[in-house]
Design a protein around this nucleic acid. Structure first.
Lengths: 243, 243
DNA sequence: CGTCAAATTGACAAGGCTCAAGTGCCGTGG
DNA sequence: CCACGGCACTTGAGCCTTGTCAATTTGACG
């Protein structure tokens, strides 16, 4: 179990270490957190709007997304998550969830109790700083999404979304930006960009016709990373990956 | 000066106290922070995208907003701010600004150096908790804006924006939701909702024709708070004002 | 090979944008 | 006190991007 935990925390430690230097002590404290591991199928709710949350979820394999549902059943996706993300740090401080988090694919998660995590951040300032930074970066990404949905036209929104996903994937150590599968359906892309699935389809077609994306089986590959960034006006500064 | 500072910090202390109980010690520590007061005219940049930030800005009078400008000059407003808001806590941890903050009206601000504020949050856990909560609530508001811009139709976006502004104003002790002036121009409302100024105008007309808003001179008053909320699908949970 | 979800396509409708021409308010200067 | 100028607000006409609806096609998998 100790072995397994260290492996499991690998993605988290790599991520936190990027956000603030961790000492061996810090790393040790993380790796010995009491946790519960779960294997989940896609479409499982990790957090449900309105509920009281008592654990934090660390995603260690697979993908997840954050969304809200309106009164008419229309859903807006607000973020996608990759291995290493704690998908609900905010519930350490805001007990009632104001949105859902759901697995996009089959996934493996660790649950950490709020009390253990609170103790950790109270006693380890570097870890606290990492987590705080990480929640501030998340906020920065939300701001960029407001811009994306509010100002860009359809193709650009989609291109931007794909670029961001590629970079976050890469930062999580899941492989380069040029060659990867998109785990989300066209419908999800629509929900994330404020467009219809139908229109997403048309825009993806446009991108493939221009040789920017390529269809491989059911999912997409990036053929021309440069042009994809240009179309999406993608500038990764807002991700605060360095400094 | 001590007198003046206590007054000046009043809005901040009220706000932080709402987020986590502060002791007299905490209050004292805040009230004795070394600060620089500035009186600013509307349209002054408090934070500029790309710049390195070394102070935090506490807004104590007037209004401000947060925005990004795209390559074609189109601007998206991401939030409005009222007295008591520290408009750039994020720059304690993320040194390079990824957006602008600008005064919407003439305003009075306090500048607090990062080093003083860092010392404060390192030594006063309740204050730290308040500030962290406040940044998490800000993130929650960003998520709601993504939904607003991505899913709601024009009238609803505008109604929602006005409702939120009314409630935040009230929470800051600036008066009730039924009767207040909107400090922003129709153009700002457009930039905040991803609409054109022209279309905002038409939608405001629609709201006034239905007896929900009333025009008073250059700005708007709320006549029917209930219906305004209904049109905007406004549910204030995401503001986490209590608990 | 059958089944089912996802993707694709086309025709049409519509919400919101653009462009362009006013109108009204308010501060300024004579 | 009035005339002027400028900025914000209005309003209308026509266009365009995106949405809607409905019918097919495709691909994965049992």
């Amino acid at each position: 179990m100790a072995e397994a935990s260290v492996d499991a925390f690998d993605a988290l430690i790599r991520k936190l270490n990027r956000l603030a230097d961790l000492s061996d002590d810090d790393r040790q404290a993380i790796a010995t957190l009491p946790v519960r591991v779960s294997r989940l199928t896609k479409g499982t709710l990790l957090v449900q709007e309105g509920s009281l949350v008592s654990d934090c979820c660390l995603l260690i394999q697979g993908y997840a997304f954050r969304s809200k549902i309106g009164p008419d059943g229309d859903r807006q996706i607000m973020s996608f998550h990759v291995a290493g993300d704690i998908v609900d740090v905010q519930h350490l401080m805001l007990s009632r969830a104001d949105h859902d988090v759901e697995t996009l694919t089959d996934a493996v998660i660790l649950r950490i109790s709020h009390s253990d995590l609170t103790a950790l951040i109270d006693n380890y300032p570097s870890i606290r700083k990492s987590l705080w930074r990480s929640s501030l970066i998340e906020a920065s990404i939300f701001r960029e999404w407001i811009f994306n949905v509010g100002q860009r036209e359809a193709v650009a929104r989609i291109a931007h979304l794909i670029c961001e996903f590629a970079v976050l994937r890469e930062a999580a150590g899941l492989g380069g930006c040029g060659e990867f599968d998109l785990p989300m359906h066209q419908h999800h892309i629509g929900e994330a960009t404020g467009l219809t699935g139908v229109h997403v389809n048309r825009m993806l077609r446009l991108l493939t016709q221009n040789g920017i994306l390529k269809q491989v089986g059911r999912s997409m590959r990036v053929l021309d990373w440069q042009r994809l960034q240009a179309v999406g006006e993608f500038e990764p500064d807002y991700l605060h990956l360095e400094a």
